[in-house]
Simulated scan of single mutants.
Amino acid sequence: MPFTLATWNINSVRLREPLVLRLMEEETPDILCLQECKSPVDKIPREAFEALGYTHMIARGQKGYNGVAILSKLPIAEVSALDHAGLGHARHIAGQLENGVTIHNFYVPAGGDKPDREINDKFGQKLDYLTDMRDAFHAERPEKAILVGDLNIAPREDDVWDHKKMLKVVSHTPVEVEHLGAAQDAGKWVDVTRADIPEGQLYSWWSYRSPDWDSADKGRRLDHLWATPDIAGAAHGSRVLRHARGWDKPSDHAPVFATFDL
């Protein structure tokens, strides 16, 4: 059963409903995972999505911030919604397809501005969240699974516009990269995007602070698509829909895609 999956930090699903509908119409992914929905679940405009064939949804929401949702043309059953670091935030939802594949959709905390947990509680929360992810994957090794989401870390040197300048900037500091790597290793997750696109600068986020974001191109690859080794080889066609960052009233993130032949 081949299917195409996309992950996108939409930065308000209600405000950017037209962009979600445009993506659905133009790119037609079978499964769309959204982060930072900023909406209670009952306020997500699912009727418009259902009209385009996305008749299945599992989600966790909060008013005004956080929130994750999986919109699918394929039947999907919720299997978990984890509260890592005990934050009480809507940052994870997982569902299982009829073929047995489990899809985890994560929104890892951004971590604030200062990369020091002694003076910045949000940075500490981010590290604790990643530690809990690691421990959960150690406790129950995932199989036949896909993990997507805004993980808010650009791990590789070529995942940021300037590695040396970014080393002390939250999202690319060594301690964050180490924590993300530990979570990835615990689940034996394969970075599908980089397996398909192994070399070169690759970004999925460009700051709103740069009005000339495209030509300046000071981006970061914060959005990820991983798979367990037993199905990673079935993935192909990875891409970042960069031009979506230039749509009218855009999210600061671009969607990331992959297709799985399963």
Rank of each mutant, 00 (worst) to 15 (best):
L87R: 07
E176S: 06
V192Q: 12
H163V: 15
Q62L: 08
L167H: 07
L19E: 15
P155T: 08
S80L: 06
E47K: 13
R14Q: 08
G187T: 12
I44L: 08
V175C: 05
A216G: 05
W206Y: 06
I10Y: 03
N66Q: 02
K165P: 01
V79S: 05
E50K: 13
T193A: 05
E36N: 02
D191V: 04
L151N: 10
Y208L: 00
R91V: 07
L225C: 02
I153L: 02
A234H: 14
A258K: 04
Q184T: 15
D135N: 11
K63R: 14
S80V: 10
K164T: 15
I70V: 12
P40H: 08
G88N: 05
L241W: 15
R245C: 04
A145L: 05
W206N: 13
A145R: 11
R14T: 11
H92Y: 08
W8F: 14
P198I: 13
P155N: 13
P109S: 08
L19R: 15
T173R: 11
A182K: 15
A244Q: 09
I146K: 11
D128A: 13
P29Y: 11
R221L: 05
A69L: 05
G149M: 01
S215R: 15
R16E: 06
I93Y: 01
V148Y: 12
F137P: 01
I58H: 03
N9I: 09
V41M: 01
F137V: 01
N152I: 07
D185R: 10
I10D: 08
Q35C: 09
D191S: 01
W226C: 04
L71K: 02
Y54W: 05
D158Q: 08
P255E: 13
N120T: 07
G88W: 13
V256L: 14
P174Y: 02
L15F: 07
E199S: 04
L151P: 02
W189T: 09
K164H: 10
A94Q: 10
M1S: 14
R60T: 15
P229Q: 10
C33H: 03
Y208S: 11
I197G: 03
A216Q: 15
L222A: 06
I103G: 12
H104P: 03
A244K: 02
E27I: 06
G64V: 05
A195L: 06
A51Y: 03
V160M: 08
G181D: 14
T102M: 04
D132F: 09
T55H: 00
Q201C: 02
H89D: 15
M133E: 13
